Simulated scan of single mutants.
Amino acid sequence: MKNVAVYCGSSSGNRAHFAVAARKLGAELARRDIGLVYGGGRVGLMGEIADAVLAGGGQVTGVIPRQLADLEVAHQGLTRLECVETMAQRKTRMEELADGFIAMPGGVGTLEELAEVLTMQQLGTTDGPVAFLDVAGYWQPFRTMFAAFAKQGFMQQRYVDNLIFSDNPADLLDLCQEFRPLGPKWQRG
Rank of each mutant, 00 (worst) to 15 (best):
Y159N: 04
K24S: 15
G41M: 02
V53M: 03
G153D: 11
T126N: 12
L172V: 10
P129D: 08
G41Q: 04
C8F: 03
K24Y: 10
L163T: 15
T110K: 14
G56N: 11
L118E: 12
A30P: 08
R42A: 00
V6H: 03
G13C: 06
Q89S: 02
M120Q: 11
S10K: 07
G57Q: 13
S166T: 15
P129N: 07
L123R: 08
D127A: 11
E112N: 09
Q121H: 08
Q76N: 10
A74L: 03
V63C: 02
G13I: 05
N3Q: 11
W186R: 11
G40Q: 02
L97R: 07
D174T: 15
E95P: 02
L45E: 03
V60C: 06
W139V: 06
C176V: 09
M87F: 08
Y159C: 05
V43Y: 01
Y159R: 07
E72H: 10
Y138G: 05
H75E: 06
G39H: 00
A69V: 01
F101N: 10
D33N: 15
K24R: 15
M94I: 02
L123K: 08
E95C: 09
F18A: 04
R93G: 00
G189M: 09
E116H: 05
H17G: 13
F146P: 12
G35M: 13
M87Q: 07
G137L: 00
M87E: 01
T92C: 00
M120K: 08
V60I: 10
Q76C: 02
I49C: 00
A5D: 07
E72Y: 04
H75K: 06
V43H: 01
V6R: 02
P169L: 07
A16V: 13
Q177P: 07
Q59S: 15
H17M: 13
A21G: 07
V135H: 03
L29N: 01
R15T: 05
V160I: 14
A170E: 14
K151I: 05
V6K: 01
Q152G: 12
Q157C: 05
Q177D: 14
N162R: 14
R23M: 07
R32Y: 07
Q177G: 14
L68A: 07
M46R: 00
Y7I: 06
L29A: 01
W186T: 11
G77Q: 05
V60H: 02
A30K: 03
G57T: 12
E28F: 10
K151D: 09
Q89K: 08
Q152F: 13
N168Y: 12
E72A: 02
D161K: 15
P65Q: 01
V37Y: 12
L111T: 13
L81P: 05
D99Q: 14
V108F: 14
A50R: 00
A27G: 09
D134K: 01
A136N: 14
R188L: 11
E85Q: 11
A16Y: 13
V160C: 14
W186Y: 15
